[in-house]
Design a protein around this nucleic acid. Structure first.
Length: 899
RNA sequence: GGGCGGUUAGCUCAGCUGGUAGAGCGCCACGUUUACACCGUGGAUGUCGGGAGUUCGAUCCUCUCACCGCCCA
């Protein structure tokens, strides 16, 4: 016998183990069927489960469990990425605690340390995903630094390099002066801050006393200025274009150039150009062929390219000095308060510097072309569709992708440099050595003999040929995820079977960083899109719509919610709120509500169990005879269809709501109640059928709910003695059970009971009082229905008799259900004036409705132009409203006559 | 500045192709019923942000204004 409440904390670990033991999530166990494959957006190996993961993985799991139950060969590929900076920082912090830096250890030992950290405590997020119920094929877990995936990375790098799609270049990058590496745009957090706008005077050369005023938020960068730009149409400066200014403090003569980058509206209209320290200025510099003078070192201190006075100063100290010095020279015109956006490194928390360095780049523009076409012609579709705009926008303006990082943890770039700086790119060192030696023998730098000696002596060779120290951006390897996890570059059966994957599920925040790059790489190396569908969900906010952040203190830990309410409740909440294109704002009250829903299901099952309901072997639901059986079977069929459609169309909220309504408001509220008389009555055919149908429908419910609430449904499945595991049971097969007649009949019963209850409550009839019911001038059909459901009506509407009559007994309360007047004689308790006003109110409401419809039907434009079925519908509504009103009116007259 | 999304019941949100405004929570009243008080029954609550237009008909389509949010520059 089941407990009174479902205890998720006790059940969940056991059920997880059960699935594991059953190998329920293994891919490839079914032959000759369609495959369904999803690759998980690999979480960061240092990460912890947050609400975004909970949403993302719930939705994937709903689809994956659904398709698995539908009999497909399902692979949900799990794994993590190696998160270059984050992981390196975790281990560095550990080292710091014992007072050593990674440099003390050396690269090799440091990387070993990272690996052992990874083995011990990395990837705990995958266990957290298990707690959520994610049905990944855990036996196939991958890591972007795995041997296989690393091989894929090498091959991709080498191939792209050979095609000229990877190259080395000197450009501005986002440089983190604390972590001493380039970082990606994703890792830069633009943050609004109060700052200043310094207006500086630059003296015009050869025009004594004439200045050009430039406004800047970063005065210290003036040391690297190589031009002043003004708008070509700006009259104020037209005569100065082509002249020079003398850069104060430095003394360099720099040109005044005309460029549209200068905005005549802001500040003075003239802008200083520092190509080596600003992304916009860099572009201006290229357009005008300006020198690029880097005045900062890797830690953002002023370097040797600046005048002695400032060398070695930190950027902020330099700023103070420069402002002071300019003021002293009378060259500081004024200082304005100014709001500006500063780029903070999200890991280091310091302001990022645009810094000129040598880095490796991917020619993203070239790779983007096929990726753009694939979405244009619909080989990959965004759901919701609008996201393709964001995708196109970014893809069409794509910048070279900087892929090198000055870190130790990651895929080391497979490039070697000869003594003259010549680059050799190869998948292995051996190959690179062979290439290099051949190269230098050919150009006669080396003799054959020297080359052979080098080849034989690794130590001398290391001096001769030096490997690039940098590693690749983590996203470079995640971009390969949809095929590298399947075994590429080997031609594996998995690759044939699962590529392209079926759908990618992710948040819009990483369309650029991940989706776009997977598209580029997938198309280039597999010649096919990595996924035909890209489902983009919203982000999770708190219940007031605020973005969750540590500083706001509104972060909710999904694991806490799982502990408190159960994974099923959290999942159901996520699915219910996953409206296409909208953000998700879960509240505790909502989650609690779905915890209650799980308990409701639990108790309904408890009831079914208590009444010894079981599905007989070879039970055929189409043979059910009782109307109530046919009705609930019909409803279950409709529900199954709607849930399937909802999931297929990514309308998770609709699917969840349909399931919720069916289970609670149809099955529990009505079917169980209507079935009680039969279940609690004498043994016989009726009871037997009811038991079978109740159990059958409950079984269906468990299946329908399983994708959303896997734990409670599996627990019940096991408890109720079903075979195997629910996770691999088959989705309800449509069995032509929809039955409009049964639905109409039970609909009438439900309506009648509801109407009686409502009137009782309104008339303050004591809950315990049993009343007689009279059906006034009822049709044969209605009388039959009342007869058939006499027991149920009596029980649920608290009646002591149900009879037919020609007239409502005097002193009765009357209502109209489906065209029949129902009368409750309650003369002794009736409050005549209350009943009179109740009837008048009803009649008034109907009158208003009738008038509205009459006006509509009286409009010739409407009857002529509206579709016929709409007009017919209005006519019907009007007829039925008029009939009901008539009946209520005569009830009112009778009542007044009696009074 | 460009793009996207939002504004519907006290709160959080649904409302698919225009044709009777819905859910959950909250609130009020009542608790006959051994599946369930994490429950049951009944009830109240909306000029669907403002304005204009298209249409026989607009929460839904078009334009416009206001406010809020996100992304990009």
């Amino acid at each position: 016998m089941l407990d009174k409440t479902f205890q998720p904390a006790a059940v969940e670990p056991r059920i997880s183990q059960l699935w594991e033991d059953a190998g329920a999530f293994r891919a490839g166990t079914r032959e000759g069927v369609d495959s369904f494959c999803v690759v998980i957006p690999p979480p960061n190996v240092t990460g912890n489960l947050h609400m975004g993961h909970a949403l993302n993985n719930t939705l994937q799991d709903v689809m994956v469990r659904f398709e698995r139950m539908r009999g497909k060969n399902v692979l949900w590929q799990p794994g993590t990425d190696h998160a270059g900076i984050a992981t390196q920082m975790v281990v560095e912090r550990q080292l710091e605690a014992s007072g050593i830096s990674r440099h003390d250890l050396g690269r090799e030992q440091f990387v070993d340390r990272v690996w052992s950290w990874k083995e011990q405590s990395g990837g705990s997020i995958l266990n957290q995903l298990r707690r959520l119920g994610a049905s990944c094929d855990w036996s196939r877990e991958r890591f972007t630094m795995d041997e296989g995936l690393s091989r894929a990375v090498l091959k991709v790098f080498v191939e792209l390099y050979r095609k000229g799609l990877i190259y080395k270049d000197k450009r501005l990058v986002n440089w983190d002066p604390k972590l001493l590496t380039a970082i990606s745009d994703l890792e830069v957090q633009p943050t609004e801050a109060k700052g200043h706008l310094w207006h500086l005077r630059y003296p015009v050369k050869g025009e004594e006393g004439r200045y050009i005023v430039v406004a800047t938020t970063r005065p210290e960068t003036m040391l690297g200025d190589t031009a002043v730009a003004v708008h070509p149409d700006d009259e104020r400066y037209r005569d100065l274009i082509g002249n020079h200014v003398v850069l104060p403090l430095v003394g360099r003569e720099i040109p005044i150039v005309a460029d549209e980058h200068a905005d005549p509206e802001t500040g003075s209209g003239a802008v200083k150009i520092t190509p080596a320290h600003d992304f916009n200025d860099f572009e201006v510099g290229k357009r005008h062929d300006l020198p690029m003078i880097n005045v900062l070192d890797e830690r953002a201190r002023i370097n040797e390219n600046a005048p002695d006075a400032y060398r070695g100063l930190d950027r902020y100290e330099a700023r103070r000095r420069i402002v002071a010095d300019m003021q002293e020279l009378g060259l500081l015109e004024r200082i304005d308060e100014h709001m500006l956006t500063l780029p903070y490194g999200d890991r280091s928390g310091v302001v990022i510097e645009p810094w000129l360095t040598d880095q490796w780049y991917v020619d993203a523009a070239t790779l983007a072309e096929p990726a753009i076409r694939a979405v244009e012609d619909g080989r990959s579709v965004f759901i919701p569709r609008n996201w393709e705009k964001t995708y196109f926008e970014w893809m069409r303006n794509i910048q070279p992708w900087c892929i090198s990082r000055q870190l130790w943890w990651g895929h080391q770039i497979p490039a070697w440099y000869g003594p003259d700086g010549h680059i050799f790119v190869a998948e292995t060192e051996e190959e690179a050595v062979a290439d290099a030696l051949a190269h230098y023998v050919l150009n006669e730098t080396l003799t054959d003999e020297e080359a052979r000696a080098l080849a034989a002596d690794p130590e001398r060779r290391a001096d001769f040929l030096r490997r690039d120290e940098d590693v690749l951006d983590t996203w470079f390897s995640s971009a390969l995820w949809p095929f590298s996890t399947l075994g590429w570059p080997d031609r594996t059966p998995e690759l044939d079977r699962y590529y392209p994957t079926s759908v990618l599920v992710t948040g819009f925040d990483i369309i650029f960083f991940w989706v776009a790059r997977m598209m580029m790489m997938g198309l280039h190396f597999m010649d096919e899109v990595p996924f035909p569908k890209i489902y983009i969900h919203g982000i999770v906010r708190d219940e007031h719509g605020q973005k969750m952040s540590k500083s706001k203190g509104n972060v909710v830990d999904p694991l806490d919610l799982i502990s408190e309410f159960g994974a099923d409740a959290l999942r159901f909440t996520m699915a219910s709120l996953a409206t296409p294109g909208q953000d998700v704002k879960p509240s505790k009250a909502r989650i609690e509500g779905y915890r209650n829903f799980a308990t409701k299901l639990w108790n309904a099952s408890r009831f079914i169990e208590m009444n010894e309901c079981r599905v007989p072997p070879r039970f055929d639901p189409s043979t059910a005879e009782l109307v109530v059986s046919r009705w609930i079977l019909s409803e279950s069929e409709t529900t199954a269809r709607e849930i399937a459609e909802g999931i297929e169309q990514f309308r998770f909220n609709d699917a969840a709501a349909t399931a919720y309504r069916f289970v609670w408001n149809v099955f529990c509220d009505w079917y169980v109640e209507l079935a009680k008389p039969a279940l609690q009555g004498p043994d016989g055919a009726e009871k037997e059928e009811t038991r079978a149908v109740a159990a059958f429908v409950l079984t269906r419910i468990l299946k329908l709910l399983h994708p959303f609430m896997p734990f409670v449904t599996e627990e019940l499945w096991q408890h109720l003695g079903h075979e195997g595991v629910l996770a691999t049971a088959s989705w309800p097969v449509p069995a032509d059970l929809e039955d409009p007649e049964a639905c109409a009949e039970i609909g009438w019963v439900i309506e009648a009971i509801s109407a009686i209850r409502s009137v009782r409550s309104e008339m303050n009839v004591p809950a315990g009082a049993r009343l007689p019911l009279v059906l006034v001038q009822a049709s044969a059909e209605t009388r039959e229905r009342a007869e058939r459901y006499g027991t149920e009506l009596k029980q649920l509407a608290r009646l002591d008799s149900v009879a037919a009559g020609d007239q409502a007994p005097s002193g009765s309360v009357q209502m109209v259900v489906g065209g029949t007047t129902l009368a409750l004689p309650i003369a002794e308790v009736i409050d005549l004036s209350a009943e009179q006003s109740r009837l008048e109110k009803e009649i008034g409401k109907l009158g208003a409705e009738i008038e509205k419809i009459r006006a509509k039907l009286g409009n010739e434009n409407f009857t002529a132009r509206a579709p016929e079925h709409v007009v017919a519908e209005q006519r019907e509504r009007m007829a039925s409203a008029e009939e009901t009103r008539g009946r209520l009116q005569s009830a009112l007259e009778r009542l007044c006559g009696a009074a």
